[in-house]
Design a protein around this nucleic acid. Structure first.
Lengths: 176, 176
DNA sequence: ACAAATAGCTATAGATCATAACAAAATGAA
DNA sequence: TTCATTTTGTTATGATCTATAGCTATTTGT
């Protein structure tokens, strides 16, 4: 399964692999994310959830009567993408779109009892999944990692970010 | 500017946001990766590169005469996906597929002078991009992050199978 | 009253990754 | 040698997540 060394003469490629790429945070980030994401997908699949639907369900459970735009902002995704996610949660009856008395445009999202139950179970499953994948890190190191990661995407806005990007920045806000 | 507060009476949703999701390393990983990936894509675009093609170009530059399967293994992607990436690099003349004397199945990948030049420039651009996005982290913290991340995807194989490399690397092969 | 902003929605596309199946070539064993 | 197996590159296809543009209905603000 590892690479087969050329047994013949051949040119004997001196492999240094991805050593130089490793200097980039983004590269290691990508590799680690890919591993975790694939396994999370795997363990969520039997529950009928994907990563995006689990995240949305979790936020909705924790923030009753949330609007779809608020959900989009919390998860840093586009409003348009929340629609299909919400659909996927509403269809099996995990959440419900309730009308808001004073605003007929928006919906108040609320998890159903089944939704809350599934969320609980999915959370357990995901905690087991992280414990399985992160055995190489202590609890302190995991928290440290979370803190470091959070400082990355926290600084996207606070560090004079959103104001001076006329175009081509990370878009979460439309100052237009 | 986190959440938009409802201006009217409304139900005043008490927003706790994604606090519970933040307990998962995977969630913060995803957010941070998404930010970095989007910006990396943006800065690579004018050079005609995507993240996947840059990564492949970098590995090919550092490992002359690499085979496509080896590239796949180093980058942890499927062989089938290397094909289109290699195509995208070969078409503008950044790399070339050379025939291998003793094995007519495989190709020896080698970067052209233009490929090496573009790789150098793209690397500078990406370093600037990381310096811009990671201002919240010191150099030591960035290295710490890389180390922590690497321990995640390093442990993916030592878990049960691949009793190969104790040394931090990935699974390549034995140079001997 | 009416322009502007907001909420949700549809359609579509790009990027990454995985899987299955295939042909040509190399390998290994009978 | 023959022949089954493995390896290499390849094609086709689908899943996931994300972004963009444009649309309708509603609300807001002047």
């Amino acid at each position: 399964m590892a690479l087969r060394v050329v047994k013949e003469a051949e040119q004997e490629v001196p492999v240094i692999g991805d050593r130089n790429l490793r200097g980039f945070v983004g590269y290691s980030l990508k590799r680690a994310y890919h591993l975790i994401q694939a396994d999370a997908m795997r363990v969520l699949d039997p529950l009928g959830l994907r990563i995006s639907t689990y995240s949305a369900l979790a936020v909705i459970c924790d923030n009753p009567d949330l609007r779809q735009s608020q959900l989009a902002e919390i998860l840093s995704i586009e409003r348009s993408n929340t629609v299909v996610i919400i659909d996927a949660l509403e269809q099996p009856g995990l959440i419900a779109r309730h009308r808001v008395p004073n605003d007929r445009r928006s919906y108040a999202l609320r998890a159903t009892p089944q939704g809350r139950r599934l969320h609980k179970e999915a959370t357990r499953v995901l905690e087991a999944h992280e414990n399985r994948l992160l055995t190489a890190l202590s609890a302190e190191e995991r928290q440290l990692m979370i803190d470091l990661l959070r400082r990355i995407d926290g600084s996207a806005f606070s560090e004079q970010g959103a104001a001076d990007h006329p175009e081509g920045g990370h878009r979460h806000e439309r100052p237009d």
